[in-house]
Nucleic acid binder design. Structure first.
Lengths: 200, 200
DNA sequence: TAATTTTTCGACTAAAAAAGCCGAAATAAA
DNA sequence: TTTATTTCGGCTTTTTTAGTCGAAAAATTA
């Protein structure tokens, strides 16, 4: 018998392959227009075989998105661990997140017509919120330690900032991408927040 | 009452608009994945309204393709009427046709998976064949008049050349685009044909 | 080799989506 | 007002798709 780990690896490899291909197809056609047969053909398996790896189409799609989200998370982790000025860090964090999120939304045609996809992505955002708050908190704590911020309740502050970021995301989700100058909006909000935060 | 022509114009304008938008959507998703609702939404009409202008989805798709084909035909007409050396003209004709056809096939995802679309395009090719033979014949006749070609049966010669062109199209339809150097293939075939055609 | 486990798939069903139809309503023109 | 044009909601029929199941195939182990 294979050891369980070896076995798991083999299976996971297949899974990964399906995910990779499914990602391409979903990103090309969106959730609704992509059929499991499309994916099955592309991975050269029968449709039924997909169910050996994933419980449902929805499940597969979520797995694909989750993988994307992990990439985003990793990028953000890097930003956070860079040794930069806390304000810059905040700025980079927000910009990185917005940029990647825009891609996500674009990718899955979440916006135009595909209601189901939108809901998934909303769901992901919701689940991610707690992580976000934690990350922001880390930045704030670091800022205080470096004697640049002056904050009494980290939790509340982090929640407040998270909310502000949501505001920045809105125009993205709403679909008028190009029209908004992201960087500019971010700087404006940052300025406002800073004058309430930075030690005088 | 509107005059019949005015009326026709208005209706045709609507038709044209539908065609234009349908073309975009078909080219994005392919025949199968495009639904009449997609198109109807895009033109801001009810799906039923489309049936006022087109008899069926197939009908609409064919109209879209026909329009593309007309564009091709117009380009070829221009090539034919240019005052160039007959051999060059033959060469330009073939290259222009292949280039445009490649676009068509690419566009409608005719190749990958979408069986129905492939059939349509094959059908179009078939219908176009007669025109093609006629056009080639014109080039040949001109060549003889200019004392560069020596041909006894224009019809047979034109059919032969048309067949050769079909051979050039094959790798396109088969899907291995990049791999083949079109221009080179054309020149080789042309050379072969010329040494059987050109007056010594 | 035989027994066991993993993986694949064809055939099927139920549910959803799409094409297509029709009559009536809205709109525009006369 | 009358007539012609255009739109569309709601309906039926057909097609497509997600998802199930059991059995076959392939791989693994003993």
């Amino acid at each position: 018998m294979q050891t369980k780990t070896e076995n798991g690896t083999k299976r996971d490899l297949n899974r990964e392959n399906i995910l990779k291909i499914a990602r391409e197809i979903f990103s090309k056609y969106g959730y609704k227009k992509t059929t499991l047969d499309d994916i099955a053909n592309a991975v050269r398996k029968g449709k039924s075989s997909l169910y050996y790896y994933f419980a449902s189409k929805e499940d597969l799609f979520q797995a694909v998105i989750m993988k994307e989200v992990e990439i985003l998370a990793r990028e953000l982790e890097i930003v956070i661990n860079r040794n930069t000025d806390p304000v810059d860090k905040l700025r980079d964090y927000i910009l990185t997140k917005l940029a990647t999120f825009r891609n996500l939304a674009n990718f899955y045609h979440a916006i135009e017509n595909d209601v189901t996809a939108v809901e998934f992505i909303e769901e992901v955002k919701r689940r991610y919120e707690q992580d976000e708050i934690r990350m922001i908190k880390r930045i704030l704590i670091e800022g205080v330690r470096k004697n640049e911020f002056e904050i009494y309740d980290f939790n509340l502050a982090a929640i407040g900032i998270t909310t502000a970021i949501k505001g920045l995301e809105m125009p993205l989700s709403a679909g008028n991408y190009g029209s908004v100058n992201l960087e500019r909006s971010v700087d404006i909000i940052l300025k406002i927040m800073c004058y309430g935060i930075i030690k005088k």
